[in-house]
Amino acid sequence: MLFAAPATPMPVLGIFYPGETAGFFLIFMLGLLIYVFSRRAGTGKRVPSIRKIPGLESIDEAIGRATEMGKAVHYSIGIGGVTHADTIASWPILEYVARTCAKYDTKLVQTNRNYLVYGVCDEIIKQAYVAVGKPESYNPNDVRWYSDSQWGYSTAVLGYMNRDKPSTNFMFGSFAAETLLLAEAGAVLGCMQIAGTTNILQIPFFVATCDYTLLGEELYAASAYISKDPVLVGTVVAQDIMKMLIAAVTLVGGIFATFKADKWLKNLFAK
């Protein structure tokens, strides 16, 4: 018994690894909803609009402020890597900001901690300048990698902001303990600051120091909100439907739990 090899787990529905089935179906269902609603939007059917998100409404105003003052826009994508959803969600915002800055000849300095993310952001910004018809304005030295260390990155950004004094500071992405350092530095310098992260422990610091903060999932709706692309808005409708389903499931689960009859439901989700 002591030296017996671990038993092979029994597959669920013949193919799934135990414990992964419910999760796979959740992703499949969400994927299907996204596909259906994006197709509906793509064929011209009416799509509801996304409710107002003040932080995203103010991006143009923030860039305009920098343009008028003749100062730079600083964009920090945080410390996450390409496996972080926050970083991926920040890319469409960066693309929009880069296009707008290129259009109005406003200097954009974009800083990174992860070198793979640096490579992606460099591509996004370069393509944004090309798309607006100003490839000669793209400056690769304005897309910066400041070391792989969280604090090396933060210190370098702190130093840059204190020297160059950008008028606008965007912080969209995955942030950790360095949040307050970056945001407070911008606040002391009088920057207009708009930030968004899904790290719940850091949102309070953004709320305390920034003009506008995207709370949690608002960061993930940003690309659809900014672009107003009906196809992307259709995907946000799919997200809402999934959340409604989850809210309904938690209510049903709570009712069953009140009558001490929720074990079967928990077992179903554990498959």
Partner: peptide
């Protein structure tokens, strides 16, 4: 890889979070 990582490893702890919200009233 990053996208696959989110979708492959994310659902299981998420499902646990949902079932942990089944609290009696």
């Amino acid at each position: 890889y990053g996208v696959g990582y989110t979708l492959a490893y994310g659902p299981r702890p998420f499902i646990k979070q949902i079932t942990d919200t089944f609290i009696p009233f």
